[in-house]
Design a protein around this nucleic acid. Structure first.
Lengths: 243, 243, 243, 243
DNA sequence: GATGAATGAGACTTCATTCAT
DNA sequence: AATGAATGAAGTCTCATTCAT
C-alpha cells in the first residue's frame, strides 16, 4: 500500500520479499521478468492489485484499474500475470508471513511472562496484523469460495494457524492451565474466526469502530475467559490483577 | 432451493412463507405480480436467486442463471425485478426473522432454566439457523461491502442483534452473573461474529466440518466461559459442574 | 391532445371524426373495433399516440407509453393496431383536413378582399394550424424519411398543398399581380417549407419564440414581397400602405 | 463517405480536414487515439457515422453499422467514442465551418458587386453547402430536439447564422436598400429556415428535385423580392458607404 | 375487450485478452 | 518492456409482440 518505498531492499518491494520469493521463483522460469526494471514493475503491479482489490473487491476490480494504478496500460499487465486470479495469488502469498505472527508467543519456552501476559501480547500482535490486512484477507477469503487455487492458499494459511494454536491449547490443558472440557481444534477455529473477522469488521483503520487498545483488552479477556486460563504457579486469583 | 415444490402458500418454502409474505405484499402495490401465477413465478425467482447466489456467489451469478433455474427466460426476470441487486434485497429481506431467533431465550423471565441451559438452547437455535443460511448470509455480507442498500439491510440486521444481546449481557452483569470487566458491546460483537462466521465456515451442511452437536456444545462453553456465566442461586463454583 | 372531451360527437373524439373516418373505415373491415366501447378506446389510443409522439418523438416513444396514456396495458394496444407505424399512419391521417386550410382563401373568387388582405388571412390561418400541429408534423415528416407508407401520406399532403398554391400563384401572374419571373412550383415549395418549418421551429406554443401576431405580419410581408404581389385595381404603390 | 480514401491529412475528406483537425486535437488530449493508425481509424469512424446516419437516421443507426462500415467490430467503436451521441457530436462539429459560409458575401466591404449580385453569390454558396450536408443536418436537427448537448451545438450554429444575417439586413435597411418594415430577426429566421429546409427537401443530389441553377435563381429572387432589395443609387465605390 | 405473463430478438456496453509494433 | 489497437465473448437490459385466461 505504501507507494513502493524501498526499491533497494534486494531489488524488491516488501510485498515481494522473503519466503514468497521462492514461490514466485517457480514462475519466473516461465514468464517472469528478467530485468531489474521488470521486477520493479511486477512488484508495483502486485502492490497496485492489493490496493485495488481492497478498495473495490475482487470482482469489481478491473485489470485496467490495477495497471493504471501501477502506471501502466492494461496490456502491460499481461507481461507479468496471466489473469486477475494469478495476481491475487501473488498478493495472497505475500501476506502469509505477517499474519500468523504471535501464535508462538503463547508457548514460547524462553519467555518468563505469565500465560495471561502472553495471550495479551499475542492478541495485540495478531489484531494489529489483521487490522492492517483485514480487507485484503476478506477479499482472498471471498474469492477462495469459488476459486480452487485461492482456496488452497487460504486453507493452508488458516489451517496452519489453527494447528499451531490448537497444539498450544492442548499443552495448556495438559498442564492444567486451561479448561479441559474444550475441544482444542473447535475452540481454536472459533476463536480464530472471531479474531480475524472482528478485526475485519470492527477494526478497520478508517472505519471508526472501537478504540484499538480497548478492543485488544476485551478480546484478550474473552480468550482468557474462554480458555479458563490459569496462572501456572502463583495462586492469586486471575481477576485480581486484570481489572 | 427446491424448484417450487408447493404452490400452496401454507407449505411454501421458508423464503416464501409467513411474515415475508407481508413484506412483499407492500411491493405488490407498486410493481409486483398481479395474478396468482405471477406471485408464484416471483417466489420461484426469489428461491432460485437464493440458490444461485449460494452456489456461485453474487458476482458470478448471472441473471439468466436465476431465470433458468426458475424455468423462465431471462427477460421474464425483468417483469419482477429491476436488477440482481433488487432480487438480492428480496432474498435478504426473507431471511431476517429466522436468524435473530434465540436471543431472547437467554433472559426469558418466564423460563425456569439455568443461564447455562439457556445459553445452550440459544446457541443451538442460532447455530442451526446460521448453518442453514450461512452461505446466503456470506453473500449478502460480501455484497454489502460495496452496495449501499444491501449494507443498510445487513447492518440493520446485525446491529439489532448486537443491541439485544449486549443488553442481555448487561443485565447479567448487573445481577452479578457475568464477568463485570467485559464491555457488553464489544464482547457481543466479537461473539456474534464468532457465531456467524463459525457457522459459515465450519458448519455448512455439505462441508464436512465438525459434528454439529459437539460444535454447539463447544461454542456454548466458549460463551459461558467467556462471560464467566454463573448460576444465579447455587453458590457452587462453575468449574465443578462443567467438567 | 385534449383528454377526450366529447365522447358524444358521433361517438368519436375530434381526432377520429370527419373525412378521416372514411380512411379508417377500410381497416374496420379487417380488425377494427366493433363495439362502441372499442371505438372509444381506439380513439383514445390515437389521441394518446399523438401526444406521446409529440413529447418523445417517434423512435423514443414506446408502445407502452401510448397504451398507458390511454389507460390501457400495452398488450391491449394490439387489439387496435399492428405497430407503432400503424398508429402513426392513423394519427397522420387525422391531420390532413386542418392543415391545408387557407390555401383557397387567396384566390377565392367570391371574396372582395384585396390579394394583400387575402394573403394575410391565409397566412394567419395556416400559421395557426401549423403552430398547433407543428410537433406532430415534424414527427411525421421525420418518420417519412425512412418509412415508405408514411412518406406516401406526407408527400400526398404536401404535394396537394403545393399544387394548389402553385396554381394560385400562376393565376396571379397571369393577372399581372405577381412577379412573372418566379417559377410557381419552386417558389411555392420554398415558401411552403418556410411556413411549415418556421411554425415548427419558432412558433411552438411553449417555446417562447416570437409574438404570434408579429410573426404572422412578418411572414405575410415576406410572402407579399416575395411574390411582388400587387393590388389588382388600385394603382397605389404597395409600399405606401404598408409602412 | 468513401471508405478512407486518403490517409494523408492534406487530402482527407471534408470531415477530417482543415480546421476540424484542430477541434479534434483538443479531444486527443483526453481520450482520443494516440497513434497515427488510431487517428485514421477514428476519422474512418466519423466518416462512417455520418454516412450511416444519413442513410438510416440516428435512431435506426446501430453502432455496429457504423463500426462495420469503418471495417471494425462494434467493440472497437468504444475505443474512440462513448456512445452514438458522442460520435454524432463529432460529426456535427465537423460541419460548422462549411455551412455558415456565404453570409459575409452580402456585405463584404471589398466587393464591387451590387447587392443583387452578392445575394445571388451568397445563395449559391449556401445552397451548395446545404445540398451536400442537408441529410446529416436533418439528422442533427432531429436529434437536437431530444438531446441537450446536440441541441446546444445546433442552436449555436443556427443562432450564429441568424445573428450575422440579421445584422446584414439591418445595415441594408439603414442604408435604405431594404424594406424597412421587415423585422430583421424574424425575417432572417424565416428565410434561413426556408433555405435550409428547401435544400434538405428539394435539392438532395439523388432526390430528383429541381435543376440546381434554376433553384438558386428562384431562391435568390425570393430573397431579393422579400427584402425589397434595391440597388444603391450611385455606382460609387461601395467602400465609401459601407463603413 | 382487456390483462398479465412470457418470449425472443437485438442493442448497448464492458472487459479480458491478443497482436503488431 | 511497453503500448495502442482490435477482438470476441458475455452480460445487462429493453421492447415489440404473442398467448392464455
Amino acid at each position: 500500500m505504501e507507494p513502493l518505498p524501498q526499491p533497494s531492499q534486494a531489488t524488491a518491494s516488501p510485498a515481494v520479499s522473503g519466503a514468497d520469493a521462492r514461490l514466485r521463483a517457480q514462475r519466473w522460469d516461465d514468464d517472469g521478468p528478467r530485468s531489474r526494471r521488470g521486477a520493479e514493475t511486477r512488484a508495483r503491479l502486485v502492490e497496485a492489485a492489493k490496493a485495488v482489490f481492497e478498495e473495490k473487491g475482487f470482482h469489481e476490480a478491473r485489470i485496467s484499474d490495477v495497471a493504471e494504478r501501477a502506471g501502466l496500460t492494461h496490456s502491460a499487465f499481461y507481461h507479468y500475470f496471466d489473469s486477475k486470479e494469478d495476481i491475487l495469488r501473488e498478493v495472497a502469498a505475500a501476506l502469509d508471513h505477517t499474519l500468523n505472527a504471535g501464535v508462538d508467543i503463547i508457548l514460547d519456552p524462553t519467555s518468563t511472562a505469565t500465560p495471561h501476559e502472553r495471550v495479551a501480547a499475542a492478541m495485540r500482535t495478531r489484531l494489529e496484523a489483521h487490522r492492517k490486512e483485514a480487507r485484503i484477507m476478506g477479499v482472498i477469503e471471498q474469492v477462495s469460495r469459488h476459486n480452487e487455487q485461492i482456496r488452497v492458499l487460504w486453507t493452508q494459511f488458516y489451517q496452519q494457524h489453527v494447528k499451531e494454536m490448537a497444539h498450544s491449547i492442548e499443552q495448556l490443558q495438559q498442564r492444567g492451565l486451561a479448561d479441559p472440557a474444550l475441544d482444542p481444534v473447535i475452540v481454536t477455529d472459533a476463536l480464530a474466526v472471531m479474531t480475524i473477522r472482528f478485526a475485519e469488521q470492527s477494526l478497520l483503520q478508517d472505519d471508526s469502530g472501537y478504540d484499538f487498545d480497548t478492543a485488544v483488552e476485551q478480546i484478550t479477556r474473552i480468550y482468557i475467559n474462554a480458555l479458563q486460563l490459569r496462572e501456572p504457579k502463583k495462586p492469586r486469583r486471575r481477576r485480581d490483577d486484570t481489572g
